[in-house]
């Protein structure tokens, strides 16, 4: 268990909880990171329009890896532009590709995501593409140089849980990269279930941002993710198709 590291693009992490930083107060970020035990936090790149805007980096401890996303991008070209700007901001080579054409369901555009992954991987980025769980696309992402694959559990921000469970399991079974379940995980039990299935990590944002007590929920997620990981590593017990089996030895003497 001590040697159980999450490895993304050659970088090692102990934590398997990737934290989002959207939709909550900057003042809560430090507590969220600490209580989540997170070593990776996502950020967005946006136009800087006013001089008063606060610098989010001030709230993030130095040893936490920054994972800028390309949200707002509608095609590969825009995602590549955002990723390059993020790198120019001077915070490393990690990038989470997020490309959405559809504004109602916010579903990722898998084809454009493959294109952007290839371009950015060739430029030396550690590319973590967010995608709709599809085995063929996941294989294309591997070939394009992705460092992980991030399938959605259900529509982003919905807190609906593992709607795509069967298809995520296929990716876990067939793809030789960390499968990080991203989007739609609404509560710790769902994060735990994904980890039991063999997911390498969980990314969550809205589940925390919309919780009553954000740091407490961060801590609950952390424990659930750790529990799920331990369960996966230990190997889940089998399920009986029919009947029952006593868990204590059957004693005879009371009957005779």
């Amino acid at each position: 268990m001590n040697n159980d590291k999450l490895i993304i693009g050659g970088h090692e992490f102990e934590s398997r909880f990737i934290l989002g930083s959207g939709k909550y107060s900057l003042n809560l970020i430090e507590a969220a990171i600490k209580d989540a035990g997170a070593q990776i936090i996502t950020l967005a790149v946006r136009r800087a329009n006013t001089k008063e805007e606060e610098n989010i980096l001030k709230y993030i401890p130095q040893n936490v890896t920054l994972l800028p996303n390309t949200s707002g991008a509608r095609d590969a070209k825009e995602a590549v532009r955002i990723a390059r700007l993020a790198r120019e901001l001077g915070c490393g080579d990690f990038v989470k590709i997020e490309i959405m054409r559809d504004s109602k369901y916010l579903l990722p555009d898998n084809q454009e995501t493959v294109k952007a992954t290839e371009i950015l991987a060739n430029e030396g980025f550690v590319v973590m593409p967010y995608m709709y769980p599809d085995l063929n696309i996941a294989r294309d992402l591997v070939n394009a140089g992705a460092a992980s694959v991030m399938p959605l559990a259900s529509p982003i921000g919905s807190n609906k849980g593992l709607s795509t469970k069967e298809f995520i399991q296929i990716l876990i079974d067939e793809i030789d990269l960390p499968i990080i379940v991203d989007a739609g995980i609404g509560k710790p039990s769902q994060a735990c279930e994904a980890m039991e299935m063999g997911a390498a990590a969980i990314m969550a944002n809205t589940a925390l941002a919309t919780a009553g007590d954000l740091p407490l929920m961060a801590s609950a997620f952390r424990q659930a993710i750790e529990a799920g990981r331990k369960a996966y590593l230990s190997g889940l017990g089998r399920v009986l198709v029919r009947g029952a089996e006593a868990s204590d030895p059957l004693t005879d003497f009371l009957h005779d």
Binding site: G20, L43, A44, R46, R47, N55, N69, A183
Partner: peptide, 10 residues
């Protein structure tokens, strides 16, 4: 010209 910075995001 585009001028950008980091902000919170998921």
């Amino acid at each position: 010209m585009e001028i950008v910075h980091f902000m919170g995001g998921g």
